[in-house]
């Protein structure tokens, strides 16, 4: 991976990587990728991909409303609210 790839990833993850640290980060991630490369050499033919480390199915719950309105408490630490809405810097996609 090159600096450009790392910068693109950083942008997607909304992480700020400064010019001073980019070389370090690139090196670290490349180290991890080397490890992954090594792992990928293992012959996995006939092994089902594992989507979760726990060998057990997901329990399901009954369709019932169990949560009460806690909007006041939940908005307590929001920087800005109005008429029950969270206010955020304007983003239009």
């Amino acid at each position: 991976m090159k600096h450009d790839d790392i910068n693109k990833l950083a942008h997607l993850a909304r992480i700020n990587i400064s010019k001073d640290t980019i070389e370090d980060v690139t090196q670290s991630i490349n180290n991890i990728l080397t490890l992954v490369d090594q792992l990928q050499q293992v012959d996995t033919k006939g092994v089902l991909p594992m989507s979760h480390p726990l060998e057990t199915p997901q329990p399901l719950r009954v369709d019932e409303v169990t949560e009460e309105n806690c909007s006041k408490a939940l908005q307590h630490n929001a920087p800005a609210t109005e008429n029950g809405l969270f206010l955020v810097p304007k983003v239009i996609d």
């Binding site: 399901l60 719950r61 369709d63 309105n69 806690c70 909007s71 939940l74 029950g84 809405l85």
Partner: peptide, 25 residues
């Protein structure tokens, strides 16, 4: 009314975990 039906899980509060609704399946 806005946000009166949004609980801690829907708001992605730290430490919350999803539990799947059988009816949806």
């Amino acid at each position: 009314e806005p946000n009166t039906q949004a609980c801690a899980i829907d708001l992605a509060m730290p430490g919350t975990l999803p539990v799947a609704n059988e009816k949806a399946f």
